[in-house]
Computed example of a mutant assay.
Amino acid sequence: MKLADYKNLNEEEQYRILWDEGVLIDACIDGTNKKLLYAIDNFFVELWCHTITNKIIWKLSFKQGKLLEKYLNKYSAPINPDNLSR
């Protein structure tokens, strides 16, 4: 599925695909919000839920950019060539 196809679906169908096909990539707590990053085919969905009620507050789908970079930067580590096995 392409991102444009996903965005053209109604919200109920988007959530069905998110729960059925989405792969949870990352999760973190930020104050009273739980942020979840899912991958679906070649795009991502970021979901914010209230930590106490578990109610969905916000959902955004995207392929790249600052929303994805914050997750990539979280896990990026410099490579030390001296530690590579030969």
Rank of each mutant, 00 (worst) to 15 (best):
L3E: 11
D5T: 12
D5G: 10
D5M: 03
Y6I: 03
K7Q: 12
K7S: 04
K7E: 10
L9A: 14
N10C: 12
N10Q: 09
E11W: 04
E12A: 01
E13Y: 07
Q14C: 06
Y15P: 00
R16T: 14
I17V: 09
L18K: 02
E21W: 07
G22H: 09
V23H: 06
L24Y: 06
L24S: 09
I25T: 08
A27K: 12
I29T: 09
I29N: 10
D30W: 04
N33Y: 03
N33E: 02
K34T: 08
K35M: 13
L36I: 03
Y38H: 10
Y38Q: 02
Y38M: 00
Y38G: 06
D41I: 00
D41Y: 00
N42E: 12
F44R: 02
V45H: 06
T51L: 02
N54H: 08
I56D: 09
I57F: 00
I57M: 06
W58G: 10
W58A: 11
K59V: 14
L60Y: 12
S61A: 15
S61Q: 01
F62T: 06
F62E: 03
F62D: 00
K63W: 01
K63N: 09
K63T: 11
G65W: 07
K66M: 11
L68H: 04
E69V: 00
K70R: 11
Y71S: 02
N73C: 07
N73L: 06
K74C: 10
Y75V: 01
Y75L: 01
Y75D: 01
S76E: 15
I79A: 13
I79V: 15
N80S: 13
N80P: 06
P81N: 08
P81K: 12
P81Q: 05
D82V: 08
L84A: 08
S85F: 05
R86W: 11
